[in-house]
Design a protein around this nucleic acid. Structure first.
Length: 585
RNA sequence: CGGGGAGUAGCGCAGUUCGGUAGCGCGCUUGGUUUGGGUCCAAGAAGUCGUCGGUUCAAAUCCGGCCUCCCCGACCA
């Protein structure tokens, strides 16, 4: 490709609204342009990177028995109504009507389509197991897109779906994906870790997320350096300390003026925060039969800990959870800042108590009256919960659930996920097969996704310097960027042909206008891993100059050896990447 | 949905306080100059000042509605 005709241009300055390095560089180097919030065009350079990423995905999916296909982006609403997600999912789902007034859905994911295909096509255990995948556009109307390609509304995803007769089969395909995903990320030069995660709106049984660790990440992860335990904070557990056994003391109401926060309260009474109970007021949407009802949720955790909303949501099997409004809190007889489960309108709330708070004796809790708290509150004697469960969030320094060593929290970007769906969709849609014993059973399913654009942006986030992008050779838009300078155009043109004939992917800066400095800066910005400079000066010295983007030294190569030397370097970089991938396993 | 910020040429910005011919840098076009890390000179092209309405002799500027984008929070496979 000749740079003079490449569609796209480099910018000296990044758009003011680009915050993240990957966003700035991808725009400045001419890879992407934004059309609207969370909606991007991918210019020819980006298209080539994404093609390479997608081909790596294809190879790894095919290697574990995947068959590629393509499913539609626009779906009739009926299939989403069958699984209930038409009703469960809110404004994040893109909905529209076709010209006949029929409700349609823009694909957020493809479980429904897969399951309807399975219903049509799979009849017998003889057709299973199977693995199908596609690389397709998804639309998710995120309330808040951000960070360039890190979080968008329209994106391309590789999603695969496993179909099995039994759970052992699912387990096999699940772990096959687990390993294939690491292969994909390693081959793209992106370090990742797998963490246990919440199943969220996908439903199902077990899930892992693949995380690229970076401070710009939106997820908080909990890691144990001692034993390797990793989990998304949403579901991370930890060993709770055993509270000192104490004889329950009599309940006592005390004045605690101006102690709206746990910190104030503990200071005022001169007690540790762990001797207090914190009340958190939420309102949950819970599906009862066909209807969604709002229920007030009263959560109690120990004062030194934070509520984990995901755990609470799962504990009460809620569809949605939001903080309660002031009036709602008053309505159940509680007082914000001085709340406790004692004396509230018990029948109007779902009371959920963290297991540690339930075990702890003689805690200080609110009196549901401005300026007053109770001393010596004890679970079982003073109040009873509807649910006692682990509902607090893991934090730095807490004890690892596996080995007890201190946990550490880090931020990460979720670049992929794998889910054991089970029969959530096949049962709902009647995707049944006839087993050996003649009975009809729902197909056991799994679903597995990787966002292509987010992966590309993460790689840029990981591989760059102050001059621009530094692509890993495996997904670089071109393998070599040839810069022709004054006195070298004729030789460069000939070398360009030779490189093309040899099958080398070459971006040729044939522009006569820009100065050498401008061309070198563009080359650094675009980030092709090899640079070949042909100019009067290099020719006088005996050939072309070959430089790796990630290194400083420049090698002078005779023109008749240039193609071979470029190919050597490409092979060397491929070998380096493979070695790094192997050591990451 | 709550809080904050911003919409003026392709990009980055000034001009708005105090209403009076729409500017600067980069980029683009033409001519010349220069030629190994974003040359220099000259001449040009390009903007319904987000949008709708109001006030006024006169609105980028004052007032009101709306739209869009960014950031934080809520939310999120």
């Amino acid at each position: 490709m000749k740079l003079s005709h490449l569609f796209g241009e480099t910018l000296r300055e990044a758009p003011a609204d680009a915050e993240f390095t990957s966003h700035q560089l991808l725009v400045r180097a001419g890879y992407i342009r934004q059309l609207g919030a969370g909606i991007f065009s991918y210019l020819p350079l980006a298209r080539r990177v994404m093609d390479k990423i997608e081909n790596i995905m294809r190879e790894e999916m095919n290697a574990i028995g995947g068959q590629e296909m393509t499913m539609p982006v626009v779906h009739p609403a009926e299939i989403w109504q069958e699984t209930g997600r038409w009703y469960q999912i809110g404004s994040e789902m893109g909905r529209m009507k076709d010209s006949t007034g029929r409700d349609m859905v823009l694909a957020m994911t493809h479980e429904e389509v897969v399951t309807s295909l399975v219903r049509d096509i799979i009849h017998s255990y003889r057709q299973l197991p199977a693995l199908i995948y596609h690389i397709q556009t998804k639309w998710r109307d995120e309330p808040r897109s951000r960070g360039g390609l890190i979080r968008v509304r329209e994106f391309t995803m590789k999603d695969s779906y496993s179909l099995d007769t039994d759970w052992e089969g699912l387990d096999k395909q699940y772990w096959a994906h687990y390993h294939a995903y690491f292969n994909i990320f390693n081959r793209c030069g992106l370090p990742t870790i797998a963490v246990e995660s919440d199943v969220g709106m996908m439903g199902g049984k077990q899930a892992h997320e693949f995380m690229y660790l970076t401070p710009i990440g939106e997820d908080t992860l909990v890691l144990c350096d001692a034993c390797g335990y990793t989990s998304n904070r949403q579901v991370a557990t930890f060993q709770k300390p055993e509270p000192d056994p104490e004889e329950p003391k009599p309940l006592e109401k005390v004045a605690t003026p101006g102690t709206k926060t746990i910190e104030d309260l503990a200071n005022f009474l001169n007690i540790p925060q762990s001797k207090t109970a914190k009340a958190v007021f939420m309102v949950a949407t819970i599906t009862e039969g066909q209807e969604d009802v709002e229920k007030f949720v009263f959560a109690v955790v120990r004062g030194d800990m934070e509520l984990n909303e995901t755990k609470l949501t799962n504990a009460i099997k809620a569809k949605e959870l939001r903080p309660a409004h002031e009036e709602e809190i008053k309505a159940i007889g509680a007082e914000a800042g001085y709340g406790s489960p004692i004396g509230i309108h018990r029948e109007d709330v779902i009371l959920v108590v963290d297991d540690l708070a339930a075990k702890s004796s003689n805690l200080v809790a609110g009196a549901n009256e401005e300026g007053y708290h109770f001393l010596n509150v004890n679970y079982g004697r003073d109040y009873e919960a509807d649910i006692v469960a682990d509902i607090v969030a893991a934090a730095d320094g807490y004890a690892c659930p596996k080995c007890g060593a201190p946990l550490r929290t880090v931020r990460g970007v979720e670049v992929g996920n794998i889910f054991k769906l089970g029969t959530r969709y096949s049962a709902a849609m009647g995707a049944l097969f006839q087993d050996k014993d003649g009975t009809r059973k729902p197909v056991i399913m799994g679903s597995y996704g990787i966002g292509v654009g987010r992966l590309m942006a993460s790689v840029v986030e990981e591989h760059n310097d102050k001059y621009g992008i530094i692509w890993p050779i495996s997904i670089a838009p071109y393998q070599v960027h040839m810069v022709a300078l004054r006195g070298g155009f004729e030789a460069a043109e000939q070398l360009y042909q030779e490189l093309l004939d040899a099958g080398v992917e070459v971006l040729y800066d044939d522009r006569t206008g820009p100065s050498p400095g401008e061309k070198f800066n563009d080359a650094d910005l675009i980030g092709v891993p090899l640079r070949l400079t042909v100019g009067g000066r290099s020719l006088k010295k005996g050939g072309a100059e070959l430089k790796r983007r990630d290194a400083k030294n420049i090698a002078l190569v005779p023109l008749d050896e240039a193609v071979a030397r470029v190919q050597d370097e490409i092979r060397a970089m491929e070998a380096e990447l493979a070695a790094k991938a192997a050591s990451a396993k």
